[in-house]
Amino acid sequence: MSSTANDQQTPDEQTARPVKGHVVIENVYKSFGDVRVLEGVSLDIKPGEVAAILGPSGSGKSTLLRTVNHLENIDAGRITIDGKMVGYEQRGDKLYELHEKEILRRRTNVGMVFQQFNLFPHLRVLGNVMEAQVSALGRSKTEARAKARDLLKRVGLEDKELAFPRQLSGGQQQRVAIARTLALDPAVVLFDEPTSALDPELVGEVLDVIRDLASQGVTMLVVTHEMGFARDVADTVIFMSDGLVVEQGPPREVFSSPKHERTRAFLGSVLEPAYNL
């Protein structure tokens, strides 16, 4: 953990309980045509909480994450971050879709890290981390560059700022992607299987960065297949199946005594015996 973690915070606030990044998901429904993907999901993720989302393939984990920053709109329900909806504004009993500009502004408060990194291949590492700071937050280039360098140091890539993304290993690329997201000082960061595209020996370096972040008071929703990581780092484990949250609780409870049959079956299929608590 470095002292450059968050320029705006005073040392006092760093130790205090975080107040930003309260994610409330209420009864969210979403279908693609006939395919019903989310069927009434409700969650309450407190500021600074780390929630690991588990579940079988196709259960709607990615879709849920994407609705949180309005990459996907929802059919019914409500998602708020610190009381504000990402894509809409409520007036009376109607929801009005916000203007593009306002959606973009609110999105900078919610970072997203993708399975496939999605770095901008034509920009150097430094450019990748600077771009949105300048074009979305309106920071000066000098300010953005300084911030980018700080973050690159924090993810251990200060010597790679002039490389192009394709010249980096997968683990390094994902760490750049994390730095790029953190550069906007988001209150919430969404991770969609951040280590699934990585070779096993590169998984650790990325998880270390995320673990470090967890101790900084940023709210995190992490879709992951890394059970060890979920157990060690998450405050809450959320188990999804068929578009519903089936089970939710502290990792110790969910892993050792899952209440629901489907959770038990899923954990039984993915957990190595060594992970059983």
Binding site: N118, S135, A136
Partner: peptide, 22 residues
Amino acid sequence: DQGQQEAAASLGIPRWRRSTHI
């Protein structure tokens, strides 16, 4: 790749800039 648009959108980069710079 469609992921480029999504990444840029999720970073709050304005639409026109996404087209011209990304």
